[in-house]
Simulated assay, not measured.
Amino acid sequence: MTGAGFPARPLYLVADLGGTTLRAGWARAGDLAVSGVRRVAVDGIARFPGLPAGELQARVVDQLVRLLRECSRSAPCTPSALAVAFAGPVGRTGTVVDAPTVWGPRGPELPLARLLGREFGVPAVVLNDVTAAGWRYAAPEGGEDDYFCMVTVSSGVGNKVFRNGEVLLPEDGRGGEIGHLKVDFAADAPWCDCGERGHLGAVASGRGALRAAGVLARRFPGVFARSALSAASGGDPGRLSAEQVAAGIRSQDAFTVRAVAPGVRYLARTLATLHIALGVDRFVVMGGFARAAGPPYLRLLGEEMAKAGDFLLPPAGAAGLLRPGAPDDDDGLIGCLRLLERTHSSRGSSPRPAVPVTGTS
């Protein structure tokens, strides 16, 4: 009991493990924000591209446990439960099926929820990161107008559709796989982290945009030399970063926009297909790359959606459908918190997700 005889609110540990950044913190039920947030670069394939998947998996799991331990020690009391948003396919029981952007293709399956539950001695939920983010934006009690699609553009590309406060996934959680739709059928199409060529994630993600900018810079060195990207990288395409490419989009640098245009076009056509097929009337665009690229990125995406010939577009065009995610980096963390609040009683019973929490990105 606390205060004037009121029971203490449960405290939760939450983490968001993406292809580039690992975030973790703690929060009490009902909090509007997550406290004590720590962010570190993921010890995965982006940092150690030459290591085998099994070794990368062990590194990432150790890193996750260490960071959650640090957050637990900084919290004011013992956590009641924990949840982790994960950038990859996750089975209903919290088993990570694959993680192309984290430890590459063909990694062994990982019963992460069971491992974390044993490690911390509390109920643990593991779910896909885009699904987790969607719980931040879904209305607590649903509603007829609560129909939207989460779209992430970060290390990879993924989506989830929410309606009336629930994520639209079947029992086995299949869905939200747009990042692994083949869109480029050229023999030399870029490789996706999953090991296949020409997937949407390979051309439209932050990593795909960086790759495209490097290719264009080497093909047209004179044009590159006059660009904002050249100034940012010291004239060396090999020193470019995804952050610099995002900044180039934000400043509407002509070379950068030209470089990323094919990937934006493929993504726009895919979203237009979802809109005309499902009638979803709101796309919340999140992810580190999309957030860093800012409003000019959404404008480019909307312009390309309009060109796709979607006759269901509202009078305002595709711009009326596209909404930016929150300006912070906490979608997965706050989404995990909201899910735990939905599924974990004040008595400390085990979280019981009412919907499948699987999916991919």
Rank of each mutant, 00 (worst) to 15 (best):
A217K: 09
S233T: 14
S241H: 11
S233V: 07
A231F: 00
A232F: 08
A209E: 06
G235V: 06
A231V: 06
V245A: 04
V215G: 01
G208P: 09
V223K: 06
A212S: 15
G208K: 09
A242Y: 00
G234Q: 12
R218W: 02
S241K: 11
P221H: 12
E243F: 07
A204P: 07
V245N: 00
S205D: 13
L210P: 03
S233K: 14
G206L: 03
G222R: 13
F220E: 15
A231N: 01
E243D: 13
L240R: 10
R219Q: 15
R218D: 04
G235A: 01
A217D: 04
A228Q: 14
A217L: 10
A212C: 12
G214R: 14
F220D: 15
A242F: 00
L229D: 00
P221Q: 09
V223L: 13
F220L: 15
G214K: 07
S227W: 09
F220G: 04
R211N: 03
A209M: 14
A228K: 05
R207F: 04
R239F: 01
R211M: 09
L210T: 07
A225K: 09
R219V: 11
F224M: 05
V245K: 04
A225T: 10
G235N: 02
V223H: 15
R239H: 08
R239D: 05
S230T: 02
S230Y: 07
L240C: 11
S241G: 12
D236A: 11
P221E: 13
R219E: 15
R239V: 00
S230C: 14
A212T: 05
A212R: 08
A225E: 14
V223S: 15
A204G: 11
G238Y: 07
A213T: 02
G235F: 00
L210D: 03
G238F: 11
A213F: 00
G222L: 12
R218Y: 05
A242G: 15
R207Y: 09
G214A: 12
F224V: 01
P237V: 06
V245H: 01
G214D: 05
A232Q: 12
P237R: 13
R211A: 12
A242H: 01
D236E: 12
A246C: 01
G235P: 03
S205A: 10
G235S: 11
P221C: 06
S227T: 07
A225V: 13
P237S: 06
A228V: 06
Q244H: 08
S233H: 13
L216Q: 15
A217T: 05
P237A: 05
S241M: 12
F224W: 01
L240Y: 04
G208Y: 07
A204F: 04
V245G: 02
V203W: 07
R211Q: 14
G214Q: 13
G208H: 09
P237E: 12
P221A: 13
A213M: 09
R226V: 03
G206D: 02
A209S: 15
R219I: 02
E243W: 03
G235D: 05
L229P: 03
S205C: 10
A242R: 03
G238V: 07
